[in-house]
Write a protein that binds this DNA or RNA. Structure first.
Lengths: 135, 135
DNA sequence: CCTTCCGTTTACGTTAACGTAATTATTTGA
DNA sequence: TCAAATAATTACGTTAACGTAAACGGAAGG
């Protein structure tokens, strides 16, 4: 079994964050490395959690929101009430994500238009230059 | 021409934010309402800017980033250098947006899986209930 | 005339998510 | 063995994006 562990600086450099950031996540209860003497030791599970948290950050989620989403994954659901509430939570989150995709698509469309104008403007200059060089 | 204008509370309620928020955006130079006496008067252009800023927020952009993106639209570009730099900016932003879409898709996939488990769990209970009711 | 709504200004408060020392231990390679 | 690198703890600092409260001005309605 790989059962690999990681030091704090390994994870920090892998994910492009500072060790301070990772310790901060621990303060907030987002990860729970164990200790070898004084040093923190991170499991593969910790690593995944950090990865998911950073993914959340990229799409504008707070740390708490990311944790909530991550926690949806662990199947500590017993009764029907909890299951129904979970389904609700998921569908709400899903709606927000779809909205975000729409927002992104809109923005991408806008950027494409601007890009088109840019290239058009540059094209004219190239023609001028070509004409100049031919003479 | 419609040439419509808006009061601060109209915009606030339309977009579901407080007037404080809109005044804050003005402090930061994101909008420039003119005055009628003391009162702020917003143009359609101001309205659009606010809309775009809030769109940016939904996908995790800072106010400054939103402004930068919005400013890409106004064609105050003169020389080739500026055009090339603009193209660069656009392609970087585009890359980030595509990354975000991937992140969202990953998260949606995860949520679907959890949802599947939920429904499976609920299904079993329904069977039990059905069986109970038949007896 | 008085109150009730907007609206404005000024200014201090708040939360999230780290940054930035300063100080102290531990380990490790020259 | 000594210095350099790596880690930990403690604690104050910072930025963004508003919230909240106080204090005041015009206007509209009963």
């Amino acid at each position: 079994m790989p059962n690999q562990t990681f030091t704090i600086s390994e994870l920090a450099s892998e994910f492009g964050v500072t060790t301070r950031t990772i310790r901060f996540y621990e303060e907030k209860g987002l990860v729970h490395p164990f200790r070898e003497g004084q040093k923190r030791v991170y499991t593969a599970a910790d690593r995944v959690r950090i990865k998911l948290i950073l993914r959340g950050k990229r799409i504008g989620m707070t740390l708490q929101e990311s944790v909530e989403v991550i926690d949806l994954y662990d199947p500590q659901r017993n009764n029907t009430q909890q299951l129904l509430s979970l389904i609700n939570t998921i569908s709400e989150r899903r709606a927000r994500l779809l909205q975000q995709k729409d927002d992104i698509d809109d923005m991408l469309t806008g950027l494409s238009e601007v890009l088109g104008l840019c290239e058009k403007a540059l094209g004219k200059r190239q023609k001028k230059i070509s004409a100049t060089q031919k003479n």
